[in-house]
Write a protein that binds this DNA or RNA. Structure first.
Lengths: 211, 211
DNA sequence: TAAGATGAATGACGAAAGTCATTTCTTAGA
DNA sequence: TCTAAGAAATGACTTTCGTCATTCATCTTA
């Protein structure tokens, strides 16, 4: 049983070179090529497909929404997103929508074939450079440097507690300051961040420092 | 140049069987075995390591915090987390902390070796079953159904506006209700969600419906 | 049509939250 | 030792929040 692959890219060059590459492996069979997401969704109705190699930026129906649609209709299909360097934002979205692999378009032939097999086996595989960006994205979410807003340690600490939903009294108990002082600190933070109240502050914090 | 691998697991059986498996591949060399995260952090000081296979649940220093620590000290090291079925929560944390691979402990020898190589090459690889849980986790985070908390459309709408940091007056203007009514609605929501104030509500919303 | 449910509004109230001027306490440094 | 700077505290005050009982209007359905 060969792995049945579908290619989706609006650039004819890409699809033909990919199918040329994939033809070299006997366990892979390229079944169809489509030039946009709409076509892909139609084409998959008539063909059972195992793995889709999908461009992320396409006219008519882009890779992210096509992924979403296809995953809802055919959850067993494994979709590998082909991306270039400058399309970070989409990656996270596509992953959420159920894409199973992420490769840069300039991937080497053997790595491409490895990836298809890994994904076919149910793994999620994210290519080196994409992985770098993804982890850095996640890490940015994890720890923002609040120093740049001129916040000191106590202030950051208090902000964290506000983002946990504590009241001033509760915060005061935690940081061993009087409730009044906590209020003052909060006023200070709000000024520095140009925010209005504790709720906006919690939101700001949880979003990693962006309004 | 062989890939230098470190094993970290408190179960002697696991480390010895893993090193037995890995010995079969000529491009991999098991350098050390440690029985907890603390030891691993110490051991890595003396040995240059490429890939770490790390258990997630260990005494003294668990896999997640060890990953965090090691990634901050030696960002080039690739860490593969070994997990069992019932440890979902940790996976997301570990990924955020820079782990590059996720495998179930019962992984087959050849897949284990493939995974080490893939991760060594900079890819992120997440094993089938772990991937399943991870994507379902991400999908849950994507769209929470607030219905289950008994919230109707207006209430959800108001909650969203609170999570944007609006005041009651501002919300009232947006939804064409009086400020008083908005207050009442908010009281209602707080009861249904068992929360205390608007800040906790914003947090709850932004976290996708989990305290 | 009457009874009952539902959604919106009101006003009154207490409790937090946030602001600000001022005072007290600490501590590093002349 | 004295003092100037900074952190913490205080008190007084305004505003906003959140709660609750009650009213009003509308719509359903027995």
């Amino acid at each position: 049983m060969k792995i049945r692959v579908m290619l989706v890219d609006d650039d004819q060059m890409i699809t033909s070179s990919l199918s040329y590459i994939l033809a070299t492996d006997s366990s892979i069979e390229v079944v169809t090529s489509c030039s946009n997401g709409r076509e892909a969704i139609d084409a998959i109705k008539n063909n059972p497909i195992d793995v889709i190699l999908m461009d992320i930026r396409m006219p008519i129906c882009d890779g992210v929404s096509a992924t979403k649609k296809i995953m809802s209709l055919y959850p067993k299909v494994k979709i590998i997103i082909l991306t270039t360097f400058d399309e970070d934002e989409y990656v996270y979205e596509a992953l959420k929508n159920g894409a199973k692999g992420f490769l840069l378009k300039n991937v080497s032939p053997d790595k491409l074939i490895d990836a298809i097999k890994a994904v076919y086996n149910g793994n999620i595989l994210i290519h080196q450079d994409v992985a770098l960006k993804l982890t850095s994205m996640l890490q940015i979410k994890k720890e923002t440097s609040w120093d740049i807003y001129g916040l000191n340690d106590t202030e950051i600490n208090i902000m964290e507690l506000i983002a946990e939903g504590l009241s001033n009294k509760e915060i005061a108990d935690r940081v061993y300051l009087s409730e009044g002082t906590v209020k003052n600190k909060i006023s200070e933070i709000l000024h520095k961040l140009d925010l209005r109240d504790r709720t906006q502050m919690a939101i700001f914090y949880l979003k990693g420092g962006s309004k």
